[in-house]
Simulated assay, not measured.
Amino acid sequence: MTLDIELIRQFLLQHAETILTWLVAGLVMMLLARFELRRAVRRSAQAMSESVATTVAACVPDIAHAAQVGSAAAEGGAVQMQRAEALRRVALDTVAAVMARGRWLEEVGNLRLPEDALLPGRRGSGADPLLVVAPQPVVQAYLAAQRTFETMAAQLQARRRDALALQDAAQALVAEAAQIEQETASIVLRFEQVNAQAAQAPQGEGGDYQRFLIQKYHALGQREKEVAQARTEMQARAAHAAEALATEAHAAAARYTESLAPLMQQLRAAWGHGDSPDVFDSWVREAGGVREERA
């Protein structure tokens, strides 16, 4: 088949305007279609954005609440861990402090110890860091034991002051007896000197002074008997008071140990580990033994 180029050229020349019109119309339709497609895409994207924004706005309170709850839970967990760690750090210090107070109660009953030696143990009754980090049951057990300690400490200190006063009174009588003995020896020596002088002097001289020395000697002898009797009684009272104080101090220390058993149980429960220190268990066993002995 042979194409007639001349015929085609004539056809194009005759219908050039029509063909050009259709081409322009097609191009315009394509541009319009592209514009409409873009506008439809923009509308769809805007509608999707609005839908997402609406959904997010509706979910924001729930998300914020969940975030706050999660943050609070995380902070709460961190605080609990810090409190547990602080409790573990100060628990053993508290055990050492309460054991020192128990020893202090025993030492109060020893009158041979000076007051200065007792001051460090008494200062241990101040505020304890355990009260800041410990749970409420531990704090209550600690305060109950502390009240027991303060009560018994006040009683023992009053008894100790009374016993020391008796000892001071007995020592004062001992000192007075020694002074009387010295004065008596001095009078005897002076009397012998006066007798020697009277033997060489005319008769009648020195008699008044001799009588004065004799009267003073008898007065000192009577006072010496009274002091000796009072000293014996005072020494017996002082010894009895010292023995009673030592017995009461031992009983007070045992009672304080027993009052610490709930605290040790709470510390063992609040320790947070299965391998709590043996000091808690041994203290609880010791307190149980004290209760059995008292029963």
Rank of each mutant, 00 (worst) to 15 (best):
L7T: 13
L7A: 15
R9L: 15
Q10E: 15
Q10S: 14
L12P: 00
H15T: 04
H15S: 04
T21A: 14
W22I: 05
A25C: 05
M29S: 11
M29L: 15
F35N: 03
E36A: 14
L37W: 15
A40P: 04
A40D: 11
A40L: 14
A40R: 15
R43I: 07
M48H: 10
M48S: 12
S49Q: 10
E50R: 11
V52H: 02
A53H: 09
T54D: 13
D62F: 10
A64F: 05
A72K: 06
A73E: 15
A74Y: 06
A78W: 03
R83T: 09
R83K: 14
L87D: 00
R89Y: 14
L92K: 00
A96D: 14
A97T: 13
A97W: 06
L105D: 01
V108G: 00
N110P: 00
L113V: 05
L113F: 01
E115D: 14
P120G: 08
G121K: 01
R122C: 06
R123A: 15
L130P: 02
L130G: 07
V138E: 03
L143E: 15
T148C: 11
M152D: 02
M152T: 09
L156P: 06
A158R: 03
R160K: 03
D162K: 04
L166C: 06
Q167L: 12
Q167R: 07
D168R: 15
Q171L: 12
I180Q: 11
E181C: 09
E183P: 09
T184F: 07
S186N: 05
F191R: 09
F191Y: 09
Q200S: 13
A201V: 13
E205S: 09
G207H: 08
D208A: 15
I214N: 10
Y217R: 10
G221E: 04
Q222F: 00
K225L: 14
K225C: 08
A228W: 02
A228Q: 08
T232Y: 08
E233L: 12
A236E: 10
A242Q: 06
E243D: 08
A249G: 00
A252H: 00
A253R: 03
R255F: 02
Y256H: 10
T257S: 05
M264H: 12
R268T: 02
G272W: 04
H273W: 12
P277C: 11
A295V: 08
